[in-house]
Write a protein that binds this DNA or RNA. Sequence first.
DNA 1: AACACACTCAACCGCTCGGTG
DNA 2: ACACCGAGCGGTTGAGTGTGT
Length: 300
Amino acid sequence: MGKGRAPCCDKSKVKKGPWTPAEDLKLISFIQKNGHGNWRSLPKQAGLLRCGKSCRLRWINYLRPDVKRGNFTPEEENTIIKLHDSLGNRWSKIASYLPGRTDNEIKNVWNTHLKKRVGILNKDIKINTTTTQEEFETNNKGQYIDVATSLVEEATASAAGSCSPTSSYGSLNLCNLSTDHVRAAEACDNQDQVINEIPSDSAGTDIDFWDMLDTDLSPDLDYSKVLDIYSNHSDQSQLQAPHYTNESSSDQHDECQKWLRYLEIELGLTQTSTTTYTGANYYECCDGFTTQDQNNTMQV
DNA sequence: AACACACTCAACCGCTCGGTG
DNA sequence: ACACCGAGCGGTTGAGTGTGT
């Protein structure tokens, strides 16, 4: 073996760029049947012209059944702010506290939203500690007034060492930042509240892909393998969606079919229709879609 | 309507870490 | 102890989309 590090793959022979639905289904199919013991060899075995790294990233960030899609809730954002102040840019560590969220997603949301917001709030605290409330209101046209006042109180309390023991971020001026504060700040920040987020990558029609999809949704699929994926590939404590251990095989089959169906919908591969699904697990999987009521009914 | 600029986020790149022989 | 390898991590990029003029 020669010196130096071997490249992870032959760059000239791998495809780069956005994944197509057909590639997604190939990857999913393969992992369903074989798991992902070796990412490096996976692309070849799965018939994908992709780097193993790329497959891993696609699976972890997008195709895993327990990935939660949709906007971050104020609670999640609050958690990220706190954890980031404590852990810094250790995104994977932060992600471990947010089931269903990936490090990449958290990193993106921090860089695009939260970093700015924290900057604004910190600035407000500084303003408020050096001006009267009236001056502050004039300077800020009434925005943030309640938020900033509360934060000043909390920052003062924090400085006095009375930060909530529920968190380990006692040194932070945002240590007790409540959900309401974040919500208020969000409202001031004119954040869009887009509920539904449908993933892209909806490439053109692919006959092979449709064949594959039909195959994968057939009763012949080895659903026990799918369950293995859930149970083996990740820390159980971080898995939110499927909990199959005590279910009958038909229940498992149903759940897996739901997940695959969900995936099909996520990939934009079904015609618009009204379909009602039930089941708590599926409801969790579909977080980010239009949920119609609390009875786990979803309209697509 | 057309253009420019800003924003978002999926994906890539290069590095580090831990396991193994 | 060392070298190699695969997995994972964090920084960065750039295509696509949205918004303002």
